[in-house]
Simulated scan of single mutants.
Amino acid sequence: MSISAVVDVKPFKTMWKIKGGKIHVLVKRELVAQFSSFLGQGGSLMLINFSVTHSCGTYRTTNHPYRIGFLSTTRVRSCEKFPEDLAGFEPVKYTELFDGSLNPDYLILSVRLFEISDIEHVNVNGKETEKISLEL
C-alpha cells in the first residue's frame, strides 16, 4: 500500500497509509480515557481502524473537507516524528482578522508573540529532542 498525503484522504476508502499534513481528529467523550495517553499536540501517531467523515459546521480547526474519527476498535501507536514543516497552524495576516475576509467556519486564534527562546536540547522518554519556548 502506498503512502498518501492527508489532503488526499476521503471517506469512500477503508484503509489508508498517510503521512504529513493537517486534518481534524474527533475523539468522542466516551473514548477519551482509552486514548488519553496518545492525545496531545505535536505528536506523530500511527492510527489503525479509524473512520473518515465530512468535516462540517463552524470553528473547524483545519480547512480539510474531512475529519478522522476514533472508534472503540481504533489502535494507536507512537511513531517517528514528522518534519516540523508538515504540522502546525496556518498563519493569516493580522489585517484579515478584522476585514471580514476570513471564513468564519474555521477556528481563528489571535496571539501575540512576545519572546522566543534559544533551541534547547532536552531528554524526552530517553531520546534527545529540541525544544523552543514561546511566550504568547
Results as ranks from 00 to 15, higher is better:
67 R>I: 00
43 G>C: 09
19 K>Y: 01
14 T>G: 15
132 I>Y: 05
10 K>L: 04
117 S>I: 04
92 V>M: 08
71 L>D: 03
54 H>Q: 13
66 Y>T: 04
105 D>F: 09
16 W>A: 08
96 E>Q: 12
101 S>C: 15
119 I>H: 10
100 G>Y: 06
47 L>A: 11
94 Y>M: 01
98 F>I: 03
63 N>G: 10
21 G>V: 00
83 P>G: 14
51 S>M: 07
1 M>W: 01
106 Y>Q: 01
68 I>P: 14
55 S>Q: 01
110 S>E: 05
1 M>E: 01
64 H>R: 08
36 S>W: 00
64 H>V: 00
91 P>K: 04
91 P>R: 00
102 L>G: 15
4 S>I: 02
45 L>F: 09
37 S>M: 08
103 N>A: 07
15 M>T: 11
94 Y>D: 07
134 L>H: 06
135 E>W: 08
93 K>Q: 03
130 E>R: 15
86 L>S: 13
54 H>M: 06
83 P>A: 12
93 K>V: 01
11 P>L: 00
127 K>M: 10
129 T>N: 14
41 Q>I: 02
78 S>C: 08
97 L>D: 05
46 M>Q: 13
87 A>I: 03
114 F>R: 05
44 S>H: 09
70 F>G: 07
103 N>R: 11
89 F>H: 07
75 R>K: 10
60 R>M: 02
89 F>I: 04
51 S>R: 15
15 M>G: 10
105 D>W: 03
37 S>R: 10
99 D>V: 04
101 S>F: 13
131 K>E: 02
122 V>E: 01
41 Q>A: 02
102 L>I: 05
133 S>P: 12
89 F>L: 10
79 C>Q: 05
128 E>F: 15
120 E>L: 08
69 G>Y: 03
